[in-house]
Every structure is written in C-alpha cells, then in structure tokens.
Design a protein around this nucleic acid. Sequence first.
DNA 1: GCCCGCCGTTGATCCACGTCAAACACAATT
DNA 2: AATTGTGTTTGACGTGGATCAACGGCGGGC
Lengths: 248, 248
Amino acid sequence: MGMKATVPITVAELKTACSQCNLLELCLPFGMSEDEINRLDELVGTRRKIKRQQNLYRAGDPFEAIYAIRTGSFKTDVLLEDGREQVTGFQMTGEILGLDGISAEAHTCNAVALEDSEVCVIAYGKLEELSRVVEGLQHQFHKVMSREIVRDHGVMMLLGSMRAEERLAAFLLNLSQRFTARGFSAAEFHLRMTRDEIGSYLGLKLETVSRAFSKFQDDGLIAVQQKHIRILDIPGLKKLIQRNASAR
Amino acid sequence: MGMKATVPITVAELKTACSQCNLLELCLPFGMSEDEINRLDELVGTRRKIKRQQNLYRAGDPFEAIYAIRTGSFKTDVLLEDGREQVTGFQMTGEILGLDGISAEAHTCNAVALEDSEVCVIAYGKLEELSRVVEGLQHQFHKVMSREIVRDHGVMMLLGSMRAEERLAAFLLNLSQRFTARGFSAAEFHLRMTRDEIGSYLGLKLETVSRAFSKFQDDGLIAVQQKHIRILDIPGLKKLIQRNASAR
DNA sequence: GCCCGCCGTTGATCCACGTCAAACACAATT
DNA sequence: AATTGTGTTTGACGTGGATCAACGGCGGGC
C-alpha cells in the first residue's frame, strides 16, 4: 500500500539552497561559517516531495542519501516478521532522516510522511567528501549522529523504566520543546500522528494512550480535542515524570 | 561510590598499537588499507585500565575522547533524578564507547566496567583531524556511529513490543552472536552482569528475569547455573521471538 | 573453616495495562 | 443530507509481570 512518490523539482524552483534556508540553525549547517555554508549548496542536489502516508524510504532500500526535512513531518518504524510494528521516532522540520542506513549500506527502517512533506536530498558520498574539506560540516554531522544516539537512549529510559502516564507526559513535553525551538507555541499544537502510532512509540496500546490523555484533561494538565492539544500546566507534567520514584 | 581509576600505562607497554592489535576487525580500523592503519597508531595515545565496578566516565564529564575496549566489558546507564536506572547497553571487546558525548561535548551516560578491563583512549579531536585525511577512517567511524543507532532501534523494538520471555531470548541470542564474532563459543558463556542489570536493560524486574531463565531451563532451551549459561536450542529461542504474534 | 553480604530463586498476591467490545466524532464521498 | 471509513473514547474484564517476602547458594575476608 502507498506508491512511491519521487517528485524532483525543476531547476527554477531550486534557487533557495542551504545558504538561504531559514531552517539553517536546526539543520546541518548550524555552527558553520558563512563561507562554509555557501559550499554546502552543492551538497543538496534535489528536493523531494512526499505525500502523506507515503514512504521516503523502506527497510532494505539501498542507502544513498540522507534527508533533511524542509517541511512536514515523518515517523520511522521497524517491522517484525510477525507484523508487529515499533515506531522508533517522529521527525519534524530541520531534522535529519536516514542515518541508520550508513552502517549496512541499506536502510533498516521505514520512513513515512505523516503529512505532505518536502525533504532535501543529501547524497551521502558527497557529504563525506565535502566534510573532509569543510571542518565545521564534519563536526556538525558527527553531532547530529551523536544527538540521535542520545535521543534513542532517552526513549530507552522511557520504555524501560517509566509507567504509562509518565511516558505520555515525557512525550508531550518533548514535542512542546521541539515546537518551541521552531518558533511555534509551546502550549498549543496539532498532533500529526494517531493514538496508535503514539502508542507504538511509547510501548503502549492506543486505548492506554487515549485514557492517559483523558486523565490529563480531567486533572487540568492539558486540553485535548482529538489531535488538537493545549498544554495548561507544563510544571505539572514535569512533576509527573520526576516523582513516582516507584515504578518498574 | 566507586573511585575514579585512571591508570596510564608506561611507554614500554605501549608497543602494540592498532597496527598489531588482534581486535582490528572488530574495532575502528576494519575495512582500511594497511597503510591507513599504520597512520592510526598515532591516534591511540594512551591505554587505561579500569577495575571492576569503576567508571570509565560519568554523565556530565566533559567529552574529550572515545574509547575502544581492548579487554573486558562495560555497561552504560542513565540515571533519573529519582534514582531510577536504565541500562542502555552492554559493550564488549572491540566495541566503541563514548559516542553519546559528541553532541553536547559532555557524556550523557555512565560507563561502568563489569570486570577488570582495558580501553584504548582515542582523542576525539585527533580522530576528526585524521579522518579528514584518511578516507577509510572517516567512513568506518560513520559506520560505527550508525551501527549504534541501529542497535538502539533494536532495543526500542524489544522494549516497546516484546514480552518478557521474548526479550530475554533476544538478549541471549544477541550475546551468543557477539561471542561468536569474537571467536568464542556461541553456546556457552559467562554473564558478566547481574540479573538486576539484565532486568534494567530489558525493562523487567530481576525476579522476572530469573523466572524466565528458569522457564527456559525447564523447556530445555538453555542450562543455567548462576552466571554460567549454556544454550541448548538456538532455533528454539529464535522461534520464541518470531511467533507470539500477539503481545502488546 | 566460618561468617557475612550479595546475588539468585521461588512462591503468593496485586495491579497497571492489555484485551474485547460498543459507541461516537469527524472527514471524505456521493 | 446520507453514507462509509477511519480514528478516538469509554467501559468491563483478564492477565503478565511487579511487588513483597522468605530462603538458598556462592565467594571473599578473617
């Protein structure tokens, strides 16, 4: 299900590259000099538009490029033979996708657009080449990879030693913080994923996620209406995570 | 608890570097030309011996180097303010420690030796520098980081969508496979970590881990005696993971 | 060789979350 | 406006693994 959607854009549309991109501080170029960033422009060969529910790549696809999200958002997931799915992450604007593919020269997870999205295609070979010349790029790329490792450790903490409501609170706070970093409201946002996908990410069933949302609403911590979330009490959510010194 | 144990070795002991190291194929140099590997020797400045139960580094320590395990084994863990611990990984000979520190220029987890161990200290600045010159090194380093991301996704799968016995089976198979890669028996080995540490890693309580071990023994899949494990039926363990299409 | 502390095992009970089921909200389609 | 489908909420009930508790085994220090 879901056809592959590769929509290379015309040369005319390609005029704004990294050097003019307003996502600069969230993406690879962060921390590089102007001169260095100008040299980055050659790196981003293409853009690609991906429609909602379509795959940017699938597990097993040969690895050729990594992707920076220009607009939209994605989930990444891993499938077990028996059909079980584990969502390994949700990515939004400015974040990098595809790093898992370097190790085996093939992607090891699926990346699916949660809404109509656009990514910058960064040919991996070129990236390695350029990062041998541009010192700041090499270091920034290492930081991006390292950040992904740190983030994954956070998720392991969440899955391994938090209870359902703590997991959801941590998830909401994480989203809030990422929206803030992008200049959006910390308190009010639209979820792009379903309860089922949140549940898969958090190691919970969709009903448990739904109940936790309702509980938070009853407790005056948030206001939920379907996918629309308003956080009313950020400190309250934070407290939820820290106490509960019990738990598995 | 646990004092810092930094034991720099003498120049005389330092004679065998990467170019003569028999762990070569498991460590960074893998896939590099002989000439390239010779240049690696300058990279490994020091070795460090770490006694059982002592920290190689702690969360918050400034990041300066990554470490390749020469002998012994480690666990890495993250602590929550309320005292909860999550073991994020067990590392053995030839594996690289400390990659999480690059992103924030400080370590984000604790690395503790599970037995008396020795690591090669790889100054990170030098590594970046050298990997700008030695193409194979850069690529190999990226692969190592990427492999860590992939491994973490595997753990997320385990924590998020497998039941207790499946998790333990996956853990044992993973150990078995890593021992095999190091030329040890696939079927018989000694656990270096406690039930509690296994439990923390797998998101289970130590009693549950213990019961699962006993169950496997009753079912003729393994023979356990405390930390000594003998795997009797590898396909049986594999089957355990794949079926059970139910689960959370 | 004995004591002590840590680690592991096993049993009995409890509870957080999964499962099953029904109803509902909203969007797209006609 | 009715229709259909997909996602969400809520309730009733079941269960896997946590919790609590007691005991057993091994290794290290004296």
